[in-house]
Design a protein around this nucleic acid. Sequence first.
RNA 1: GACCCGGUAGCUCAGCAGGUAGAGCACCUGACUUUUAAUCAGGGGGCCGCGGGUUCGAAUCCCGCCCGGGUCACCA
Length: 504
Amino acid sequence: MICLLEEMRKQRLEEIKSLREMGINPYPYRYDKEFSSAEIREKYDPVLKAGEVLENEKVSTAGRVMSIRDHGKSAFFHLKDQDGRIQAYIRKNSVGAEKYELFKKYVNVGDILGIKGFPFKSKTGELTIFVEDFEILSKAIRPLPEKWHGLKDKEVIYRQRYVDMIANDESLDKFKTRYKIIRMIREFLNGKGFIEVETPTLVYVTGGAEARPFITHLNVFDIDMYLRIATELYLKRYIVGGFEKVYELGKVFRNEGISYKHSPEFTSLELYWAYADYEDIMNLTEELIEFVVRNTLGTTKVNYQGVEIDFSRPFRRVKMRDFIREKLGVDILEDPDEKMLEVLKKNGVDVPIKSRGHLINKLWDLVEEGVVQPTFLLEHPVDISPLAKRHREDPRVTERFELIIYGREIANAFSELNDPVDQYQRFLDQMKLREAGDEEAQMMDRDFVRALEYGMPPTGGLGIGIDRLVMFLTDSQTIRDVIAFPLVNPKSLDEEIDYGGEEG
RNA sequence: GACCCGGUAGCUCAGCAGGUAGAGCACCUGACUUUUAAUCAGGGGGCCGCGGGUUCGAAUCCCGCCCGGGUCACCA
């Protein structure tokens, strides 16, 4: 009747009780961790030969016990910390009989331990800490996944990421890389004089992208509000207000489907640069991406799902019109809708006659997978770019680009529309679509139009999907693998927890 | 939303000509002072995802549902 997990937990809870009776706090307050596993390795690995001992060097470290190899009157074990793993060696005659008994009886795989001792190298040459004293820093009451195979169950990996991080070193490393990427982005932009700002997450109207929003309620004014779907319109208000280089790194929320490249909550970088146009933004984007990749991975050549992607500048630049004409023999500016429809049908895509923009998007879908190396796709038709300025030389297209890598859109940028009258008209067009039932059409943002009426300088803007970028740099197949705590179905976990009497 | 694959011990997995459940790791007891998937001896542990059906008998066959993964569609 009683399952094994409960038996194990009960056993651990009994041990904790015994420890307390002996006057040992199984959850003490602090520990002087002088060195991380990596710092110890860095310092002593090069200077020690197999079998050598540095008895006068004293070090302390701490981490989670990942394995124990018990030899009776001595034992080897590994500690894992944020930087890696380090082996330790404990011996009855080095810590005393009483302390050694404590280790044997009360220390288990999964516990957090602090150790003090000196470094040496074992016969086989592994750097090891010879333990002279140790302290239990936290007793675990649940067992860890298997030490050899790790945790494989995707469901547990996503629902209990902390277990994944404990059991699978690659998982911890992946998230460390994610935050290094984000640090590099900040470093680059701060170095260029950009100022990191914040905009509201709770908004009265959504804008800056086409997506269905999450709706929430504000009690104090008794109104419905939305979670932002982009940071764009507020960042441009900063530009109106007098900021010239701003960026925001933050979560945006879109109430849409989940796929390997879509998450309802994801991280975006948006930046706006006054007096710049999309050419300037393109150059900045190239430089930013190369900087981030090089400083995160130490190279610009990245293996993604078995394909080498080279992030070194310059990126290829192709006009959307030329690319589609070359691949499909259809001109998205000159040819009539019927011709485009015919080409789509020939390629097995049967679409109802909708807008011209819809047909253009479908044509692009046919060819985008062929774009593997970082490529700027330029000058999208006005029909599919409601937020971008018309091109100064060809009013049928816009001053816009997308960065395509491995067939995926990583960035989107324009010379920003700053004509308030034009902007107002485009909002009106969006509202018509909305009234016709298009839930993703943009909402009228009168305050934003009012801001533009005060005058916004010519401005270039850029948006980057950070999660998708991280996927490339961590060779991750799905966006969930780069989001530490992804959205999961909250099936009820009516697991009753028994802490055994007065415990807890 | 459609189709395909999966759910068995804490973990990784086997078992599916229908006969009432196994291994390794982990855990407990014992031996062992340089191991590293340590080794050796012994032991405990299962609502076989949930519900229904067929059958003398179901982890195994059938139906429905839940959860997860994948492909496609939808969506940017």
